[in-house]
Each structure stands twice: as structure tokens, then as C-alpha cells.
Measured scan of single mutants.
Amino acid sequence: SELMNSSKLIRMLEEDGWRLVRVTGSAHHFKHPKKPGLVTVPHPKKDLPIGTVKSIQKSAGL
């Protein structure tokens, strides 16, 4: 199965306009000026399962 580095996923979010608002432990929480909701990324993780990545991307509207 495909894995993604959390840094790469965070870069994709930031390029889309998401900004880090809070860190709780290894959970990084992002908000967007125009899009609704809060997106949480486990970080640092070298090997996020593709299912997790897809669900984060979906929440972020990517």
C-alpha cells in the first residue's frame, strides 16, 4: 500500500492556503481562511497510510 510523508501532505495543505493554528502532541491542526472546518494531520510521520491521506485531503477539499 502507498504511504505518504506527513511533511509532504502539510506542504500540499499550505499551498492550498491552510495555516497551522494549533499543535496538540503530534496532532497539527490547520484552518483555512475561506474553507470550513479544521483539518488535523499527525506529524511528524514518515508513513501515513494512503487512506488517512485521502481522508485528510477530502476534509481539506483538495
Rank of each mutant, 00 (worst) to 15 (best):
Ser59Glu: 10
Arg11Pro: 02
Val23Asp: 06
Lys31Trp: 08
Pro36Cys: 11
His28Ser: 06
Pro44His: 04
Val53Lys: 02
Ser6Trp: 05
Leu20His: 03
Met4Thr: 12
Ser59Asp: 12
Lys45Gly: 06
Thr52Asn: 04
Gly25Trp: 12
Lys8Gly: 10
Ser55Thr: 08
Glu15Tyr: 08
Met12Phe: 07
Ala60Asn: 02
Asn5Gln: 12
Leu3Tyr: 11
Gly51Trp: 12
Lys35Trp: 03
Val39Pro: 02
Thr40Gln: 09
Asn5Ser: 15
Arg19Asn: 08
Glu15Phe: 08
Met4Trp: 15
His32Ser: 02
Ile50Met: 11
Thr52Ala: 07
Leu3Trp: 07
Pro33Phe: 10
Pro49Val: 04
Gln57Tyr: 15
Lys34Ser: 10
Ile50Asp: 15
Leu20Ile: 07
Lys45Thr: 07
Gly51Glu: 15
Leu20Gln: 06
Lys45His: 07
Glu2Gly: 10
His28Arg: 08
Gly61Trp: 03
Ile50Cys: 11
Lys45Leu: 07
Gly37Ile: 03
Met4Arg: 06
Asn5Thr: 13
Ala60Met: 04
Ile10Pro: 00
Lys34Glu: 10
Pro33Lys: 08
Leu3Ser: 13
His28Leu: 06
Thr52Ile: 14
Val53Glu: 02
Glu14His: 10
Leu9Asp: 01
Gly61Asp: 06
Ala27Ile: 11
Ser7Val: 09
Val21Asn: 05
Leu9Val: 08
Ser26Tyr: 12
His29Phe: 15
Ala60Leu: 04
Gln57Leu: 15
Glu2Cys: 12
Asp47Lys: 12
Arg22Cys: 11
Lys46Ile: 13
Asp47Met: 11
Lys34Met: 10
Lys54Val: 11
Val39Cys: 04
Gly17Thr: 01
Leu20Arg: 09
Pro33Ser: 08
His28Thr: 05
Lys35Gln: 03
Glu14Leu: 09
Ile50Gly: 07
Pro33Glu: 08
Val41His: 01
Lys31Met: 12
Ser1Ala: 11
Glu14Gln: 10
Leu9Ser: 01
Lys45Val: 15
Leu48Arg: 01
Ser59Ala: 15
Ser6Gly: 04
Gly61Cys: 06
Glu14Cys: 09
Pro42Lys: 04
Asp16Met: 05
Pro36Gln: 11
Lys58Trp: 06
Arg22Trp: 15
Leu9Gln: 02
Lys58Cys: 12
Thr40Cys: 12
Gly51Asp: 15
Leu62Lys: 03
Ser6His: 03
Ser59Pro: 01
Lys45Pro: 04
Leu13Ser: 00
Asp47Thr: 11
Pro49Tyr: 05
Pro42Asp: 06
Leu13Met: 06
Ser26Val: 12
Asp16Pro: 00
Pro36Lys: 11
Ser26Ala: 10
Asp47Ser: 13
Leu38Gly: 06
Asp16Ala: 07
Ile10Glu: 02
Leu38Arg: 09
Asp47Ile: 15
Glu14Val: 10
Leu48Tyr: 02
Gly17Lys: 03
His29Ile: 15
Leu38Pro: 04
His32Trp: 00
Lys45Ser: 07
Gly37Ala: 06
Val39Trp: 01
Val41Thr: 02
Arg22Glu: 09
Glu15Gln: 11
Gly37Cys: 06
Arg22Ser: 10
Ser7Lys: 10
Lys8Arg: 14
Met12Ala: 08
Gly17Arg: 03
Pro49Asp: 15
Gly25Cys: 11
Arg22Gln: 09
Pro49Thr: 09
Val21Tyr: 14
His43Arg: 03
Leu48Thr: 03
Lys54Asn: 08
Ser59Thr: 12
Ser26Trp: 13
Pro44Glu: 03
Arg22Ala: 09
Pro49His: 06
Ser59Cys: 12
Leu62Ile: 13
Leu20Trp: 04
Asp16Glu: 06
Pro44Asp: 03
Thr40Met: 13
Ser6Met: 03
Ser1Pro: 10
Thr52Gln: 11
Lys54Ala: 10
Pro49Phe: 05
His28Tyr: 11
Leu48Asp: 01
Ser55Leu: 12
Lys54Gly: 05
Thr52Val: 15
Pro49Gly: 09
Pro42Arg: 04
Gln57Val: 15
Val23Thr: 07
Lys8Thr: 15
Pro33Cys: 10
Val23Ile: 14
Leu38Trp: 12
Phe30Asn: 00
Ser26Arg: 13
Ser59Asn: 12
Gly61Pro: 01
Pro36Phe: 09
Lys54Pro: 02
Thr40Arg: 14
Ser55Ala: 15
Ala27Gly: 07
Trp18Met: 00
Pro49Ser: 14
Val41Asp: 00
Ser26Met: 13
Gly51Thr: 13
Gly37Asp: 05
Val53Trp: 07
Ile50Arg: 08
Gln57Ser: 07
Ser7Gly: 11
Asp16Lys: 04
Glu15Cys: 12
Lys45Cys: 14
Asp16His: 07
Pro36Ser: 11
Lys46Arg: 07
Gly61Ile: 03
Leu48His: 01
Thr24Ile: 10
His32Leu: 00
Lys46Ser: 15
Ser59Leu: 15
His28Asp: 02
Pro33Gly: 09
Lys46Pro: 15
Arg19Leu: 10
Asn5Phe: 06
Ser1Asp: 15
Asp47Val: 13
Ile50Glu: 15
Lys46His: 10
Leu38His: 08
Met12Asp: 06
Arg11Ser: 12
His43Asn: 03
Leu38Ser: 08
Asp47Cys: 14
Pro44Phe: 04
Arg22Lys: 14
Val41Ser: 00
Leu38Asn: 08
Leu48Val: 07
Trp18Gln: 00
Glu14Lys: 11
Ser6Cys: 03
Ile56His: 01
Gly61Arg: 05
Met4Glu: 05
Val41Gln: 00
His28Glu: 04
Leu13Ile: 08
Lys46Asp: 15
Ser26Ile: 14
Ser26Gln: 14
Trp18Glu: 00
Val39His: 01
Ser6Pro: 03
Gly25Glu: 14
Val41Ala: 01
Leu62Cys: 05
Lys45Gln: 10
Pro44Gly: 04
Arg22Thr: 07
Arg19Glu: 07
Gly61Val: 02
Ser55Phe: 11
Trp18His: 00
Phe30Val: 00
Thr52Asp: 07
Pro33Arg: 09
Leu13His: 00
Met12His: 06
Arg11Ala: 14
His29Lys: 10
Lys46Tyr: 13
Ser1Met: 11
Arg11Tyr: 09
Lys45Asn: 12
Thr24Pro: 01
Ile10Arg: 02
Ile50Pro: 12
Pro49Lys: 07
Lys34Pro: 00
His29Cys: 11
Asp47Gly: 08
Lys34Phe: 12
His29Met: 15
His43Leu: 02
His32Asp: 01
Glu2Tyr: 08
Lys58Gln: 15
Gln57Cys: 15
Lys54Cys: 15
His29Val: 14
Ile56Thr: 02
Ser59Arg: 13
Leu3Met: 11
Gln57Thr: 13
Val21Trp: 13
Ile56Leu: 03
Val41Cys: 04
Ile56Ser: 01
Val23Met: 10
Ser26Asp: 14
Ile56Tyr: 01
Gly17Leu: 03
Ile50Ala: 11
His32Gln: 01
Arg22Asp: 07
Ile10Asn: 02
Gly61Ala: 05
Leu62Met: 08
Lys54Glu: 14
Leu62Asp: 03
Lys8Met: 15
Lys35Glu: 02
Gly25Pro: 15
Arg22Pro: 01
His43Ile: 02
Val23Gly: 05
Ala60Arg: 01
Leu3Arg: 12
Lys46Leu: 15
Glu14Met: 11
Lys46Met: 13
Val23Cys: 08
Lys45Glu: 10
Leu3Asp: 10
Thr40Val: 11
Pro42Val: 05
Ser55Glu: 14
Val21Phe: 14
Leu48Glu: 02
Arg19His: 07
Ser7Met: 13
Ser59Tyr: 07
Arg11Trp: 10
Ile10Thr: 02
His29Leu: 13
Leu48Met: 07
Asp47Tyr: 15
Glu2Ala: 09
Met12Cys: 07
Lys45Trp: 07
Gly17Cys: 06
Pro33Tyr: 09
Glu14Asn: 09
Met4Cys: 11
Glu14Phe: 08
Arg22Val: 07
Leu3Lys: 13
Ser7Asp: 12
Ser1Gly: 14
Gly25Ser: 12
Ala27Ser: 13
Arg22His: 10
Ile50His: 10
Gln57Gly: 05
Arg19Lys: 12
Ile50Gln: 10
Gly51Pro: 06
Lys35Cys: 03
Lys46Ala: 15
Thr40Ile: 12
Val21Ile: 11
Val21Cys: 10
Gly37His: 06
Leu20Gly: 02
Ser7Leu: 12
Ser6Arg: 03
Val39Gln: 03
His28Ala: 13
Leu9Cys: 05
Phe30Arg: 00
Met12Pro: 00
Ile10Cys: 04
Ser7Thr: 14
Leu20Asn: 04
Leu9Glu: 01
Met4Asn: 08
Thr52Trp: 08
Arg22Gly: 09
Arg19Tyr: 12
Gln57Lys: 11
Leu13Val: 05
Leu3Gly: 14
Ser6Asp: 01
Val23Glu: 08
Pro44Gln: 04
Arg11Lys: 12
Gly25Ile: 15
Lys8Cys: 15
Lys34His: 12
Arg19Gly: 06
Arg19Cys: 10
Arg11Thr: 12
Pro49Ala: 11
Glu14Ala: 08
Trp18Val: 00
Ile10Trp: 02
Val39Thr: 04
Ala60Phe: 01
Lys8Ala: 14
